[in-house]
Design a protein around this nucleic acid. Structure first.
Lengths: 225, 225
DNA sequence: TTCATGCTTCGGTTAACGTCGAACTATGAA
DNA sequence: TTCATAGTTCGACGTTAACCGAAGCATGAA
């Protein structure tokens, strides 16, 4: 008996290596062009174009034009969440690449998940936010008064973040840590702040690289030992 | 550049309607036979047998024999979590069945997610547990002393649950509510208890049906208005 | 031992899909 | 206006995979 949403169609779209690679590349929240995505997926322009047409038709990606460039991005953080979930499942069931490189460890240490920090650092941050009572968890994760002061002290405009449509805080399940990290508008703003402060920078693909002093500052800020 | 776990293979397995239907049928945590799953998927025995062979080879399902019967179950709660995630994404992107029936609302109200309560009731329960300080959230969800007394009062053997391998409490993202419900050994034990008490019973498929008095008792127990 | 049931395996058929070369369209630069 | 670049569309080709009828294997009942 079939009920509920139709998942086979979505899963089938993710089930092609070229499309999966393109979506994974978009997990860093940036918008990429057809040419760039063709390169990431290792297929020709025509093949990439056809795949992106399918992904957009299924509302998994959004396309915007700038002159003759077509930019594609994920249509929402839930796409990244599903990809994270699949990565966790692939990890547990043994669907992993034979040769793991330094990139794999780097991805586990810190990476971007759509627009917020994921990986060990991401999970550490949410842990610390709870321990320091910066957030409380009712319906989902909510900011405490102490947290509001704390993040304002870090230079974030919490009022502006709250005015947006998306939730301020969201728990996001991390494939590599199997625990939650902090998503939502706050999660995104924090990563933006870390980059602006020079604590971290974007590295290859989805890797976020912390400088030694940046890692130290991050740990100090959140009282992480 | 390809890195991290290989998700296309897993996604491709979920991307066939017959296999997706079989996995969805197994989300209720029960074990089903090849014949039953063939019926659920609307394919012949041979086709179902082949699909199950693939799913088991990929470690998505586990098979155990009893005489000439082969029983299949999901290999872990993370498979159900990924399916829940895909259902949420399918819902948002419009990959839904044209005709929604009463079953759809029933699924939203209360259903089983692998072995614990999901849906509005499931989310309500976790909300209430937080509000009543029955759980605290550090690394993940942890039981408070008050919570330990509360659930022991409900007849649960918390010590035994903690001795098991799986985490006592786990947040599990609910596709229909877009918020977390309570998974883990405690989540499973609670649903088992509700059924044992007669508050709820299994209905068709994954639907969990609360009796009127059971729903009232559930609300009273968790101080839900 | 024979028969019934549950299930697997094999081989053939069909449809679907990804791929790319070639041609074309849209946009921007010279 | 012409040329270059980004991207789309079309058609052909090859591969893959789902499906099922038929045959066979494993298990249990009579």
């Amino acid at each position: 008996m079939k009920d509920g949403p139709v998942i086979a169609n979505i899963a089938a779209l993710l089930g092609d290596p070229a499309r999966a690679n393109m979506l994974t590349a978009l997990m860093d929240g940036r918008a990429l062009t057809v040419s760039e995505l063709a390169g990431v997926a290792g297929v020709t322009l025509q093949t990439a174009s056809g795949h992106l047409a399918k992904l957009s038709a299924a509302n998994l990606t959004l396309m915007e034009k700038q002159g003759r460039h077509r930019y594609f991005r994920l249509s929402g953080p839930d796409v990244a969440e599903v990809l994270e979930g699949l990565m966790g499942l692939a990890q547990r069931t043994g669907a992993v690449r034979v040769r793991t490189g330094p990139k794999d460890q780097a991805l586990r240490t810190a990476r971007i998940c759509y627009d917020h920090l994921a990986g060990e650092r991401g999970v550490e941050m949410l842990d610390a936010a709870r321990r320091l009572h910066l957030v409380a968890e009712d319906a989902d994760i909510a900011l405490t008064d102490k947290g509001r002061d704390f993040f304002t002290g870090l230079g974030l405009d919490i009022d502006r973040l709250e005015k947006g449509k998306r939730p301020l805080c969201r728990a996001c399940l991390d494939w590599s840590e199997r625990r939650n990290h902090l998503g939502g508008a706050l999660g995104a703003a924090l990563l933006e702040s870390f980059i602006a402060r020079g604590w971290a920078r974007r590295f290859e693909g989805r890797v976020i690289s912390f400088t030694p002093s940046g890692a130290q500052a991050f740990r100090s800020a959140f009282s992480i030992e």
